[in-house]
Design a binder for these strands. Structure first.
Lengths: 357, 357
DNA sequence: TTGTATGCGTTATCAC
DNA sequence: GTGATAACGCATACAA
């Protein structure tokens, strides 16, 4: 069907080797010959088969990105609500993907993506390994054993993994620097005596790390910490946790810190429905600084995570390992940044243009 | 490095043909032999190289997804604002991707993604063609010529393309059914005499279609239509258009319809900054029903587009063409649904659980 | 400067 | 049942 290198060779009256040279811009070709080949390529609409090229060259020209699939069907509370398909846009993953894609394309690589049900992902991961030159594993998309298995075979970068397990490189953010700053901001500046926490999934090392940090810093600052429960990073889970808490306890802590912006979004909506003023009655913070956070009312105070940069850096690290340049950095930690808006109790500021990346 | 079929064969004391049969679950193998081979596979941690497999079988086991890259650097207004990197999460694309990924994985295919600068995308598209069995082209990621070129070689689905150009299948939503309903809702029920429009990019056939529909229906309903300008589907562009309009004209139409939710999000923020009450002074609607729309205040009245279904259906169509089943549907049109919330002027409703997909 | 021949890791078609 | 062996489409070392 599709024309092959043989078709082009025949048409141009040369050998396939010459076609290969012309197509790949090798030099040492008579300009005349090159032109003839390229003309044949054009006429036939020839595109090199990347599969065959990969087999021959030993490089697939592809990087894989492995996500956790957090989408799932969830039964809501007993209020006879129907099944609701969780339809959250996994915004953080999305930004990571964009960064990864940008870097990959810049370097002439293709990007393969797959999402797996956490932990039961070994087959999918191995399947992917056979298609790519290296893999970026986001969060805990695979078990430690599988991660080690993978990294023994091809370059692997673990994103948001607490520390290196085997031969892979770990790329993560510092969950503590900005979190410390933010907790201090709430405790010292706003003098909130209690900090409620909407935690993230316990399978996320980021979530665990952030939680521990809040506890430590709050203790230092002399504030009480109240755990409202653990969500799954979705807005709906944030809503649910606050609703149940209100039913059970009536009152909320003076400030609530959510371990990501999506849950904060859900919390904010629920507070409004219950006529609880933010930040006057209950201050609120998030984590990630996703796009919509600045559009919420009140605008969300949060911590900016360089999601796109994480993605692009992860891919770049893979490519460096492939080309065997670059010191074998085993662990890369990126800094975050506190973004003060109105939901923490600070006066609404003039909207500033913000350099995002 | 990675073990090959030869390593397994040697280890199990069989030929590579036998290994292939065992790995691919062919029958006609003595159970004993099969077990021996599988044991060797396990011990060596053998994973078939998908590249070689693809070459041999003629199928790459991969579907490609081609997007327009709308991200770009944009200079803001003269107010000496700095360069701002557009950092929009392209939520619609994201949902399409999720749907495509889900379907592809279910059918045992991998998903390759690429984003291209609109129209200048021919090389990237052809490059991708060499890696996949079929391509889903989203919006106008490639020119009509390139689309035809692609579809002559492998199965192609054009998403949100107005009509079939060549051999590809067009998959799109009906931009007019729900839009008609929504315009009528604003004109007949709310009796708004003027409808402002924040248009989408003129390269999007969806945007053009929606715009034309508003004009037609508004005329029927006896309402005046005022075009406020065309954005690029980003929230920032929505903000900018409204700001310039306010500077130039002072007053806004009684209702503003945005051609997507992201622009509506930006418009809403700008209206609030200018102390224009929504919906009391200016009603607002969107298109897409992205996740955050229900969390905005007022919650956004919009039109739900089955983005994930579009993605999965697109991939499914590719796969059917590949397997040569399925009537050659040249055009598939999906319906949309009006979602009435508060921003159009309707009373805020009890939050309903909504079946999203 | 160009052509020939081999290998890349599979699958599949033959024989045995 | 199982084992040689020929494709698959390309890159490349080696010849010419």
């Amino acid at each position: 069907m599709a024309p092959t290198i043989y078709d082009v060779a025949r048409r141009a009256g040369v050998s396939i080797a010459t076609v290969s040279r012309a197509v790949n811009n090798h030099d040492g070709l008579r300009p005349q010959t090159r032109a003839r080949v390229l003309a044949a390529v054009e006429e036939l609409g020839y595109t090199p088969d990347a599969t065959a090229r990969g087999l021959s060259s030993g490089s697939r020209g592809t990087v894989g990105l492995l996500f956790i699939n957090r989408a799932r069907e969830a039964l809501l509370d007993a209020n006879d609500r129907a099944w609701e398909t969780e339809h959250e846009a996994l915004l953080f993953d999305h930004d990571v993907t964009r960064g990864a894609l940008r870097c990959a394309q810049l370097e002439g690589y293709a990007l393969l993506i797959a999402s797996v049900d956490s932990m039961s992902s070994s087959p999918a991961a191995k399947e992917m390994l056979g298609r790519v030159d290296g893999i970026v594993v986001v969060d805990r998309a695979v078990s430690a054993e599988t991660l080690a298995w993978l990294s023994r075979r091809k370059p692997v970068v673990a994103l948001a993994w607490e520390r290196p397990i085997a031969d892979e490189t770990v790329l993560r953010i510092d969950n503590r620097d900005s979190m410390t700053e933010l907790v201090m901001h709430l405790v010292r500046l706003h003098r909130y005596p209690q900090l409620g926490i909407i935690g993230g999934p316990l399978t996320s090392s980021d979530a665990i790390d952030r939680l521990a940090c809040v506890h430590e810093v709050a203790r230092l600052g002399g504030a009480e910490v109240v755990e409202l429960g653990h969500g799954d990073y979705s807005a709906a889970s944030g809503s649910r946790l606050v609703e149940s808490w209100l039913v059970a306890n009536g009152a909320l802590p003076r400030a609530v810190m959510c371990m990501n912006d999506q849950m904060a979004t859900g919390v904010l909506a629920t507070l409004e429905q219950n006529s609880i003023a933010v930040p006057e009655q209950c201050a609120l913070t998030g984590f990630d600084d996703i796009l919509v956070s600045r559009y919420l009312r009140p605008a969300l105070t949060t911590i900016r995570q360089p999601a796109e940069e994480l993605g692009s850096l992860a891919v770049m690290t893979i490519l460096e390992a492939l080309h065997e340049q670059g010191g074998t950095a085993r662990e890369i930690v990126l800094r975050t940044e506190v973004v003060i808006r109105a939901s923490c109790g600070c006066a609404p500021q003039q909207q500033q243009p913000q350099r995002v990346l």
